[in-house]
Design a protein around this nucleic acid. Sequence first.
DNA 1: CCTCGCTCGTGAAACCTTTCACAAATGCTC
DNA 2: GAGCATTTGTGAAAGGTTTCACGAGCGAGG
Lengths: 211, 211
Amino acid sequence: MLPRKIADSTVRRLAIYLRFLEEFQRQGQATVASDALAQRAGTTSAQVRKDLSFFGSFGTRGLGYDVVPLADRLREILGLGHRHRVAIIGAGRLAAALVDYTGFSARGFEIVAVVDRDPARIGAVLAGLTIEDVADLEHVVRRGEVEIAILVTPAGPAQALVDRLVAVGITAILNFAPVQLQVPEGVDVKNVNLAVELETLSYALSARAAT
Amino acid sequence: MLPRKIADSTVRRLAIYLRFLEEFQRQGQATVASDALAQRAGTTSAQVRKDLSFFGSFGTRGLGYDVVPLADRLREILGLGHRHRVAIIGAGRLAAALVDYTGFSARGFEIVAVVDRDPARIGAVLAGLTIEDVADLEHVVRRGEVEIAILVTPAGPAQALVDRLVAVGITAILNFAPVQLQVPEGVDVKNVNLAVELETLSYALSARAAT
DNA sequence: CCTCGCTCGTGAAACCTTTCACAAATGCTC
DNA sequence: GAGCATTTGTGAAAGGTTTCACGAGCGAGG
């Protein structure tokens, strides 16, 4: 059903296409051409068609793609058919911003637990969830049948926490800590590193200035 | 001085190497081999050497790289020699998390202004900065000699704000809004899209389950 | 001061991703 | 129902990035 190996860049674009398909759907458009999708997504029509072709062929020649069925299929491909249960590790300001972000639940990601190490935070309520003790991490993850962990801790404890998460069976981690996590085969980590993003912008500024 | 075109992936790795070099420096290590750096950064020694080779050759054969000079050179390459002034557009929770993040100032990024549209927020103080009216965006950017804008608004107003930022000369934007921004040649945008990250993790979960 | 072991620097090869270009297929119009 | 305009699906080509492999150069140690 799913082909062997799909490039990460392709998967990211599929997620972006899905967003625009949903927009087209809201606007009542029934079909959309690869070119229209490409323009919105900042890519080319050939890229769109190639990306989709990895999973079959859903277009109609001369017309384009039917918006609703394509969106459904993309959701299926991306595994958004069921809700994913997410735990947030660390209850600082970034965690507060994340639980607040309505986009999560709108797209099927449900935050079921927040843990922290700081006794001053444990017991407090964040967006309806009581912050729990990170000491109970394993219990919290099992109880919530958590699939995805979002790590928003300082760099120091990050690796140890990941080791514990992996040990209880977590295989998908979104990491905001500025460290390169070591994980075994079969565990996926996506890093979001604000410092790296800013530094690439800084590089771009310098590179332009040097020209 | 700077070579033609450096891949984005290379620049990102340089930023990561820099982080580890600083760690080695704190630990008092004088030299480091490409292999040690590679292991920490999750890549290969050949990759490290290739990345560095684009900018010259700073290693000593048989020995490795001198930690301090290499770190200095990387900072220079990345344009971290002087502080960058940053404005934050949008004063929601994510903005609060960002101004709070000490990593910014530690790495030479200084937040000089925060603006928002909401009258209820304007005038409030966030980490020592008074939130200003987004209507005065152009004035704020000029006054602060802002180089980098961080966009943390909802998707709706994002493009219009970017147009205004570009018009006042901003050429580097870090975008957290879940839209694909259209900018003219010569303006750099880095996107951080939490929904896309989560959806790629969701895909990875499905793809593994299907195997 | 010669040899040895180590690690860099780098062209070449392998691999992967994107772009191109065009045949094939569809809907629409007349 | 034939012809036309349109847009998909996809091999092939181009372009880009990573890995390989090895010569070159350096320091250490005798």
